[in-house]
Nucleic acid binder design. Structure first.
Lengths: 172, 172
DNA sequence: GGGTACATGTAATCAGTTACATGATTTA
DNA sequence: TAAATCATGTAACTGATTACATGTACCC
């Protein structure tokens, strides 16, 4: 029916798509603010991608672009029917792959770095991040939607695990 | 003194560098086998990168390349003094950033997917991965070097946490 | 009115992915 | 000996990062 979508959709695409779907309408700069606390820990994007990705999605017909006539001539994006469908299809399908750990500290550990030296600074970082999550949890309680709150809880659990792990190395 | 290394070194670079340092000498294909169980869960590489990255590192003087004169004309790589220095500098410096979660399941959760639906398949995947780690732990006990074993323990801890997390969603 | 921070974007580069190709061994 | 699998690589593409650039608003 419609011309084939040969645009590959990446996680980046769905993040942008979702953020715009929720906002109703958004400029790249607004997307930047929308990439707030919660999701930045989960999956952050470079600000340049918030300009290129919407353009890409618009070309594929998943977003509609409207440029201001005067002044800054900012570009505003809204999701289209097609975009909404793509998004809901994606949300329905449980993903088949796990994430890799990709932790730079672990990587060095793997290749022979001194465990205690790494552990010391890692522990600090994770304790800070843990505190951030606890704060997010407090702030979100009752007001934030379910999805983001669950993600915060997941993050919290992992940070606790990291703290446990690196502490155990320091104590060994 | 030596010409400036304008080659940026990424985690990929250090993985290749380390694997070659450990092997003494290796061809890209041998690197592929060296990317065994443990590290693949931590940080996997595409096989094509095992061809391009050593070439890049050789050009930067961190590896020495030797090509077979006859037959398959495979390329063999060894680490140079400069490479060894780069590697040990990297190992010494505790990294300053944390990893993002980048879990596709969590991402969908964040944007409103049905928690239980996601949880079901995620739980299975993580239970399988957990079993793999337990097996690795058993196999490595006493024989594998410290670094990789610690990484397995870290992986184990996180898989347990994932199982806990997704289970709690199913039970809620 | 000059500095500083926020806002807004484009261009160039590069790392990483996907696709393509073919040679060598093993096995049925 | 045909099929399948392992071994070995190159080429093309493209998403993501880095760098560059300029505009606007606020505040001291």
């Amino acid at each position: 029916m419609s011309s084939k979508t040969e645009t590959r959709l990446t996680p980046t695409s769905y993040i942008v798509l979702s953020l715009i779907a929720v906002s109703g309408e958004a400029t790249p700069y607004e997307l930047k603010s929308a990439m707030a606390a919660g999701i930045r820990d989960l999956w952050s994007l470079q600000h340049a991608q918030l300009y290129t990705e919407p353009a890409r999605l618009a070309k594929a017909g998943l977003l509609r672009e409207r440029q201001e006539e005067e002044g800054r001539r900012r570009k505003h994006y809204r999701i289209t029917e097609k975009g909404r469908r793509a998004l809901s299809d994606w949300l329905k399908e449980p993903p088949a792959e796990l994430a890799e750990l990709r932790d730079p500290g672990l990587l060095k550990l793997f290749f022979g770095a001194d465990p205690k030296e790494i552990a010391e600074t890692r522990l600090t970082l994770h304790e800070e991040k843990l505190a951030e999550y606890e704060e997010l949890l407090r702030q979100g309680e009752g007001v934030a939607p379910v999805g983001p709150m669950l993600v915060v809880q997941a993050g919290l659990g992992h940070e606790r695990e990291w703290v446990r792990f690196w502490s155990s190395i320091l104590e060994s």
